[in-house]
């Protein structure tokens, strides 16, 4: 594990970038909390969010080129979507299934991020079926001689699927520019990682596919950024795939329909709340004189305001036309020659 103590500097990031990282994390936290709140108010039928995963999500998305590199996310990746360029409004329109929801037009559940302009690929709910897509996208980049890479995300549970294995094997064989990010929050809903796999670090599987794997402290945004930067450089050089496992913890239930008290002790949740990646990074920023208390508070206020405005706008947006449910089953025209 890369520990925060080994990080002497800021991984080459400027002060503005360090604060930008913090702001993206804050925004992800705020959007997640807002979606859960709107759900409890009866405004959105379902919420699945990623509080606790912000360092891992923002840290891995930050070294990428938005709209150039390909993002194949899973349902908890609010921080990834926001870092790549989706807005709180985009996510809240999806949460409330309003017209203008770029991700799905009210068809997919919330947090199923999609935006062709940003190369964020629409996903489904069966876990890890998107892994072969990431490999296929990277294959296309390679065949076309483009310097794009694709990044595929899932949780610890997703690593048990056949598609995860098949895609990593395929990526290894073809030396594809793809990065697999495992957000290991130690639970697949209620199933603990001890029942998911028999190894301590899932990253060791990478060796079996012929590419490097690394486990990082997923609550340390700079350690995550550093690991991702290395993987991105490797992929861009044409040296193939990387598996990055970040160890973290979700600070909230699996979804708005889950009661995590049935399977997680309050003591355990309390312990991890003490390792909150936002608090930890905030402290680091202060200790290293990147920002003072007042500056950081102003960022919190700014994020809250941005999400308030987005909420207001999303709630005013019209609902989709009922008959639009019949649209886009098939494309009628032929492929352009």
């Amino acid at each position: 594990m890369v520990s925060v103590k080994e990080i002497t500097g800021a991984e080459g990031l400027s002060r503005d970038q360090l604060l930008d990282l913090y702001y993206k994390m804050l925004l992800a936290r705020t959007v997640g909390q807002r979606e859960r709140m709107l759900n409890r108010m009866g405004k959105g039928p379902f919420a699945v969010t990623g509080e606790g995963h912000e360092a891992l999500q923002v840290g891995t998305a930050y070294p990428l080129k938005p709209g150039h590199d390909w993002i194949v996310p899973y349902y908890r990746d609010i921080g990834v979507a926001l870092t790549i360029g989706q807005t709180p409004l985009d996510l809240l329109l999806a949460h409330l299934s309003r017209e203008g929801d770029i991700s799905s037009g009210g068809r997919n559940m919330p947090s199923h991020f999609s935006d062709p302009r940003l190369h964020i690929v629409s996903g489904s709910a069966p876990v890890a079926t998107h892994f072969p897509h990431a490999a296929g996208i990277a294959l296309a980049s390679k065949l076309r001689g483009l310097d794009e890479l694709s990044v595929c995300y899932t949780g610890d549970g997703g690593t048990s699927t056949g598609d995860c294995h098949e895609a990593m094997n395929f990526a290894g064989v073809h030396k594809l520019p793809v990065i697999f990010v495992i957000e290991n929050n130690q639970y697949a809903i209620s199933v603990h990682v001890r029942k998911q796999f028999a190894v301590e670090d899932i990253s060791i599987r990478a060796e079996g596919y012929g590419f490097p794997g690394v486990t990082v402290d997923g609550n340390d945004v700079l350690a995550v950024y550093a690991a991702m930067k290395e993987a991105v450089d490797r992929a861009r050089r044409g040296d193939g795939a990387t598996l990055i496992e970040g160890k973290t913890y979700r600070l909230v239930p699996h979804t708005s329909d889950d009661d995590d008290r049935r399977y997680r002790s309050r003591e355990e949740v309390e312990e991890w709340t003490g390792k909150d990646p936002l608090v930890r990074y905030r402290n680091w920023l202060k200790e290293n004189d990147v920002a003072d208390e007042a500056k950081l508070d102003s960022l919190h206020e700014h994020a809250a305001r941005e999400v308030d405005e987005a909420t207001e706008q999303a709630e005013k947006a019209p609902t989709p036309k009922p008959e639009s449910a019949l649209d886009h089953v098939l494309i009628e025209e032929r492929l352009a020659g």
Binding site: P132, H133, G136, I137, E166
Partner: peptide, 14 residues
């Protein structure tokens, strides 16, 4: 599954 899945992915990218 990977044959079809990778084909899907490649089809998204030209």
């Amino acid at each position: 599954s990977c044959i079809v899945g990778a084909a899907i992915g490649a089809s998204l990218n030209g």
